[in-house]
Amino acid sequence: MRDQRLWTWHVAAGLVVLVTLALHMAIMHLDALLGLFNPAGGHPIDWANVAARSRQGFFLVSYVVLLGAALFHGLYGLRTILHELGPGPALRRGVDVTLLAGGGVLFVFGAWAAWAAFALARTV
């Protein structure tokens, strides 16, 4: 049941990454064609454009969702590779706990960074 659940979330996270990454690519690399979310014109990573995006709740949510989905998708893949190296049950458990803890720390740190950028952008 556990692997069935994890695999399903792995696929779902892959789809979320696909959508959010496509949005990121469209904003960052197709600005000349689409001009999405770059209200100040110029380059997408100019301060005015970054600040304009960061003060929107939509981007705060999409950053956190992308972070969570990418972390889960990538760390589950890493877990699969490590399990295939043939560790014993105790080491498998250790791999699971380490990846879960590492993923949790990275998620909290990344989510805090997204929130901090949101809060900062609202003040300027």
Binding site: M1, Q4, R5, L6, W7, H83
Partner: peptide, 13 residues
């Protein structure tokens, strides 16, 4: 069959 297939023995690897 799902009791075994949904776990480590399943098609996930």
């Amino acid at each position: 069959r799902k009791t075994a297939l949904a776990g480590d023995q399943g098609p996930w690897r």
